[in-house]
């Protein structure tokens, strides 16, 4: 397509993309939440390393632990998706492949996130 117009000229008058600082803000918000939540996960893994299955399930399924883990999953998945989105947009320049990767990125975090949620809920209800 032989279009001599500049990119700026093409978007002028179309209004804002309605996203503004949303990506930045959500990225920082989840980063902040991830700090205590991942430290809690590290602590939990150390606590449970080498313990038998009954002890592990009883601990992971207890209310406060399960809620903290669910919060971590939510925050981490949003953070991961935003981060990988930036990587894809930075390095993949072919429009079609980029869109495919962005879709797969979303599918990946939803799949991993829901798997974790399923396991945590199952443990809480007495697996």
């Amino acid at each position: 397509m032989a279009d001599m117009r500049t990119p700026l000229n093409k978007v002028r008058g179309l209004g804002s993309a309605r996203e503004g600082a949303d990506h930045f803000w959500r990225q920082r918000l989840t980063a902040l939440a991830n700090i205590p939540l991942t430290l809690f996960l590290v602590f939990t893994v150390i606590m449970l390393a080498g313990k038998d299955h009954a002890t592990v399930t009883a601990y992971l399924g207890s209310s406060l632990v399960a809620i903290a883990l669910l919060a971590l999953v939510l925050s981490a998945m949003v953070h991961m998706r935003l981060g990988m989105q930036t990587v894809i947009e930075d390095y993949i320049h072919s429009e079609g492949l980029k869109v495919v990767c962005l879709i797969l990125n979303t599918f990946f975090v939803i799949l991993v996130g829901l798997s974790c949620v399923y396991a945590i809920v199952k443990l809480s209800l007495g697996a």
Binding site: H53, L60, G83, V112, S115, C116, Y118, L123, A127
Partner: peptide
């Protein structure tokens, strides 16, 4: 960041293993 993205699979694996029973968890 990208390594942690992949590493989230290990956390999911661990949680699913715990939820699926003693044999697989062990």
């Amino acid at each position: 960041g990208m390594a942690l993205y992949a590493g989230s699979l290990l956390v999911a694996w661990w949680l699913l293993a715990a939820a699926s029973g003693p044999q697989y968890y062990n």
